[in-house]
Design a protein around this nucleic acid. Sequence first.
DNA 1: TATGAATGAGTCTTCATTCAT
DNA 2: AATGAATGAAGACTCATTCAT
Lengths: 195, 195, 195, 195
Amino acid sequence: MSDKAARKKQFILDTAKKVFSEKGYKDVTMKDIVEACEISRGGLYIYFESTEQIFKAIIDAESAAGDDVFSRTRKDATAGDILAIFLKEQKKELLLKKDNLSVAMYEYLFVKHANGESCKDEKAKFDAAVEVLTHLIENGTENDEFYCEDPNGAARNIMYVIEGLKIAASTYGITEEDIDNELLFIMSGLLSGEE
Amino acid sequence: MSDKAARKKQFILDTAKKVFSEKGYKDVTMKDIVEACEISRGGLYIYFESTEQIFKAIIDAESAAGDDVFSRTRKDATAGDILAIFLKEQKKELLLKKDNLSVAMYEYLFVKHANGESCKDEKAKFDAAVEVLTHLIENGTENDEFYCEDPNGAARNIMYVIEGLKIAASTYGITEEDIDNELLFIMSGLLSGEE
Amino acid sequence: MSDKAARKKQFILDTAKKVFSEKGYKDVTMKDIVEACEISRGGLYIYFESTEQIFKAIIDAESAAGDDVFSRTRKDATAGDILAIFLKEQKKELLLKKDNLSVAMYEYLFVKHANGESCKDEKAKFDAAVEVLTHLIENGTENDEFYCEDPNGAARNIMYVIEGLKIAASTYGITEEDIDNELLFIMSGLLSGEE
Amino acid sequence: MSDKAARKKQFILDTAKKVFSEKGYKDVTMKDIVEACEISRGGLYIYFESTEQIFKAIIDAESAAGDDVFSRTRKDATAGDILAIFLKEQKKELLLKKDNLSVAMYEYLFVKHANGESCKDEKAKFDAAVEVLTHLIENGTENDEFYCEDPNGAARNIMYVIEGLKIAASTYGITEEDIDNELLFIMSGLLSGEE
DNA sequence: TATGAATGAGTCTTCATTCAT
DNA sequence: AATGAATGAAGACTCATTCAT
């Protein structure tokens, strides 16, 4: 029975994810989720007691499922290859229309930040990405693939640009070309020193 | 009496701005504004019929008042000076605690974007800034103050980093040092090529 | 307008009093009162924010209006007369069917007591009545109207009997004869010593 | 298996009694009892279909177990002794904190009375106690232990005072001294005539 | 203009009760 | 017997919006 319950819980999370991706975080009500799931009001409360709890469960699951791009790359890939794959991954996410939690996540973090709660998990994820990129750029520099005097600075720059692109995609909207331009600029910055 | 009305309208906008800076956009109700202004419910409706209308009025006023950093700089300032001033201005805004509309603005744009309305005004402002920065960097490059092969790319990079910093400030939180690091990285990128 | 508001508030209290007298305290919902008053849900909340607040307002008003039997008696009344009037008053209240708040009041005090809140106002009213009765019996004893060795004890006895009758009236039910028997027993106890 | 069922039923009643003594009658829900018993929702319904039914079962059991003070006293006890024991028993109950069903019982009787149902069982218990006390006082009077012209009146007076004390204990709160004072007043009233 | 009372819709949350397993 | 998931009704509370004054 716990198995059935787990499947139902998962079903709710999957359905709620769609709702959050469509409406953001703040506007989603328990009623929205109830209706999307086509279950009863009370039925939802058996599994979750608030939209916050549901959203947390969704992002925790996302994190857990979070594919580490880097770990998926081949052993013999060059730094340039890996970086290219990473940026391509980011691009794919930026262009994602359905099931895109960016807006909901930003709204959620706004709430947490406004309430004085730390967003350390998300911050940690950002910092971890910077860390990995730093090493990657250092390796690339040692191999003479890249030229970079400040790998950590470059890594941070990349991550902030990606955040900037993400927010742009969630507001003004952004074209594939816009993204390509930015990513190319980043790549060329690392390669340019070579000459 | 139209004068008195205008003053009252302005008073409402000033007061509402504080409310939006504290609560973001989505959570602000007409009731919040009525209470902050200490006027009657009906009284507010005479001037504005929704929070959206009020918020629009606030950001329009901001735009109008929006000081153009560039136009305020001295004629004989170098490109490097002007860029430094621009970045310092951005830093000041990033650190602004009170009357900071960033979160409200993002939430507002999320809504517009989700509704399929274009955010062209804001996009235009972004593009305009890129434009100005591009010219600035071009000038700097011509003067040999900067070294830059792709001024437009560099300008966009700067603007996306600033967006990234802004969203970071509104979510994880950000220290003055974090900002300085990013801005220095940008400046050194433009200057580094000189050697 | 404040006048109209005061009248409406009073109307709500009057109507709510009927509801409390019919349903007790715990079972009364804001909805019950809304329906009894034939106003809207929100309309009630303008004046009161909970059934507790409404009930408090009712009993405060009752206290304020609370006729002091003793102050209404003629100057030349004997102690026996005054006591007889007092007991008759109690009898009248015990037999009251409509607008009888006894049950609601008990339930309200149960809640307060269970919550560890003091019921000092009600206790004070009880003690005050004991006090007055004590003086009355003392006076009666001095005049040789009554015979009583422990006026304070007798006063307390009377008040506890009245409480006992009140709860009996609210539970088992009680006949006029039952009350008369008790009150006569009390009176005869005070007079019996004379012989 | 009926044995097992009986034990479970008893367990539910014992547990529910604690709940009623803590929360009174009206506020107790089937959920409260389910949780206190740590059984399933459906499991409770197998044995009882409402809180009312459970409460009735509890008070029926109490009545059945109800120790008759009088029958427990020694044959050669004097009327004064027996009355003293009876009053001491009442005092013990008045001071009982845990497992005290007074409030729940009052609330239950309020409901029955309001619904026009007779509370004859409880009334009968009250009357029976009056009856026994009457005989006791008569005996005491015959033995010259007591002096009392109206034994039935005195018996009723005692019972109403006890009701008064019970309700006072459940509302204002009452001290041991308060109880002692009342009980002493009663005893001395019966003894006083002796002189 | 300005007030603030009034309405009613919307959401939240809790339970009694049922039912498939 | 027993479980606990599921339903739906009931009540609380908050606001956007209107309107008489």
